[in-house]
Amino acid sequence: MSAGTTSVSLDKPVVHPPRRMPGDHGSPLTQSRGVARVLRIVSTALIALWFALPFLPLVLWSFANQWMHPAAFPMEAGTDGLTAAIANGGGLAFLHSLLLSLVVAVIATPLGAMAARALSRGHVRFGKAITVLLFSPVLLPPFAAVLGLNVLLLRAWVPPAVGVVLVLVAVAIPYTTFSMRAAYAAYDDGFDDAARTLGASSRLTLWRIHLPLIAPALARSAFLAFLVGWSDYLITLVVGGGHMITLPLIIASSASGVGNESSVAVLSLSAVIPPLILLGFIARTRNLDPGKQR
C-alpha cells in the first residue's frame, strides 16, 4: 500500500471534501494492486454474470421468431415478438405505466422526505411508533390488499385511479422515508443555520441551500418510488379494476399463454429501459455543495 499520491493534497484549504457518487472514478488510494487486483476482477466478473444471466433468455427470445428445442440458439431471427407486443397494446400500456409511476414518485418522495426530516430531528412525539407505522407497508403481503383493502376503497367510493395511486404511494413511503432518513443522518444542519444567521429567509434557505444539498438523496428516493409503481401488478389489477392497463398487466396476461415467449421478452426488456434512463439521470445529480468551488 502506498500513500504517495497526488490526488489528496493536505495543505489545500478544503473546507468540505466534495461528496462522491457511485460511478465517480476511484482514487488511486483505494485502488487494489497485484493479487488483490486479480481477485477483484474475478469477483467483479462473477457478480456481473450473476446479474446478467437471467437477462439472457429475454435477449435471445426477443429476436427469436422460432426457437424449438434442442437448438442452442434461435432458429429464425426476426421481429415477430415486437409486432405481437405492439398488437397486444404494449405501446399504450407503456405510457400508462410511465404516467402512474411518475405520479407515485412525485407524491411519495416529498412525503417521505418531510417525514424523514421530522423523524431524524427527534421532535416528533411517538416517533418510534410512527417509524414502525411508516415502515409497516413492506410487511403487508400484496394479497392482503386483494382480500380486504379493495372492499374498503370501493365502499368509500374512491375512484379506481385514485385508489391505485393511494395504495402505491403507501407502499412506496417506507422506501422513500428510509432512504431520506439515511441521507438526513449524514446531513449537516450547519449549512441551514449559517444561511439563516446570514439573513436568508426560511424559504430561500430551503430552495437555495437545503434542497440542492439533498438533491441526490431525493433523486434516489424518487427512483425507488418510481419502481414501486413501475413493477406493480396485483394492486394495479385489483384496485384499478381494468381502468389502468399497465405494462405488467400486459406482460402477465401474455405470459399466461403458450408460445408468447418472444413478445413477453420484448415487453419485459422494454420495461427495463425507462428506469435505467432515470438511473442515468440520478447518477448525474451531484450535490450542489455550497462548500465546493465550481
Binding site: N88, G89, V146, N150, V151, L152, L153, L154, R155, L237, V238, G241, G242, I245, L249, I250, A252, S253, S254, A255, S256
Partner: peptide, 22 residues
C-alpha cells in the same frame, strides 16, 4: 378488452364490488 391472466380475477373483482355494495 381488459386482458387478465386468470378469469378468476374478473370474478373476484365483481365479488369485491358486491361485497362493498357497489
Amino acid at each position: 378488452r381488459v386482458p387478465i391472466a386468470d378469469t378468476k380475477d374478473a370474478l373476484n373483482r365483481v365479488f369485491t364490488e358486491l361485497q362493498a355494495g357497489r
